[in-house]
Design a protein around this nucleic acid. Structure first.
Lengths: 190, 190
DNA sequence: GTCTATAAGAAGATAGAC
DNA sequence: GTCTATCTTCTTATAGAC
């Protein structure tokens, strides 16, 4: 009874997730979503009393997706270095989207941080999931300063995503990922 | 006759420059600016027929500031490596603003890229100024792949700015700048 | 759960007086 | 150059019928 017919609530969350990414949170209205879903705005309001509430649901949705992904990667790659490289491969795989819309986590946080710090703090938790996961991998490699290394990896990934987005150029992702891989390999060699 | 009384046009551009940075472009209205300047909205429209036109002026304004800064740094630091390090020092000096509002170039481009790619391409020219300036420094150091290195430096700087902004933590800037300086020094040693 | 209707406000932009 | 007044459209949100 889960696959039968997706509830309108779920359809709203999934479309909002996509539009918040493609157009930004503030540039996406209830009308946008209602029209594309062929439902009324009143229906939207029934499911989500405010836009903040919808954003909250979208963040929850993304968090769950991230948890699943990280869980899968952990199963598939027992070796910590392989896991770290899998993270980099994600950037290469998602290059097209990154170039078009930026990083889903980075761009949302960037937008919300300006005038909606309260919700941004919630949105930041997506990064926390990655940090925790990366921490574990670096710790397994024997590094005491795993927190510092996780942040550096996230930071380089965000830089790559942003610059490739600014110049709409996937080549930037490629080159920056080479730098990241070099950095990971140089650590392993020590 | 330049210092006497700043024209309203200039006051508008300078306040818009600040508010676009602090609140974002889409979150800043003509009314916002008019109220704070104690002028009418009609006056705003007289000087800038559209909001895009105002943004255009703000980008011009920022570009000129960047040109001046880069010109000064070039005079003050004849050695290319010193210039590159001066760029990193800027991040440390501006840490408070970066933590509060992100990078003025990165956050504006990130915002505009989603739904206003045309203006974003104009805004991207701010990055071009830095790229050109960094290219010259890396080229002077003898590197054939100066373009790649400039982009990597910008990318790391943007990553540091974004992550410190996401976590509202200036410490992240410090640590990431150490990584950048290490990278610069490792190149010099070769 | 879903709809229509509508409120109440803010946005960008225009017209015309001074 | 600066102002007031107004238009139009879009926004979030509410009320109440089905």
């Amino acid at each position: 009874m889960n696959k039968s017919k997706p509830s309108n609530r779920k359809r709203i969350v999934e479309l909002a997730n996509r539009l918040f990414y493609e157009q930004g949170y503030n540039q996406t209205s209830f009308s946008d979503i209602a029209e594309r879903l062929h439902i009324s705005k009143g229906n939207m309001t029934y499911h989500f009393h405010s836009k903040d509430e919808l954003l909250h649901a979208v963040i929850e949705y993304r968090m769950e997706q991230i948890r699943e992904t990280l869980r899968d990667w952990k199963e598939q790659y027992p070796e910590p270095l392989d896991r770290l490289k899998r993270f980099v491969t994600m950037l290469l795989n998602e290059a097209d989207d990154l170039v078009d819309c930026g990083c889903p986590m980075g761009s949302l946080n960037a937008e919300l941080g300006k005038t909606q710090r309260n919700i941004q703090k919630e949105s930041r938790q997506m990064f926390d999931l990655f940090r925790q996961w990366l921490d574990e991998a670096f710790a397994q490699l024997g590094y005491k300063d795993f927190g510092k290394k996780s942040m550096h990896l996230l930071s380089m990934a965000q830089g790559a995503a942003l610059m490739s987005y600014v110049y709409a150029d996937p080549e930037i992702i490629d080159v920056e990922c080479q730098y990241i891989i070099e950095w990971l390999d140089s650590m392993d060699a020590q």
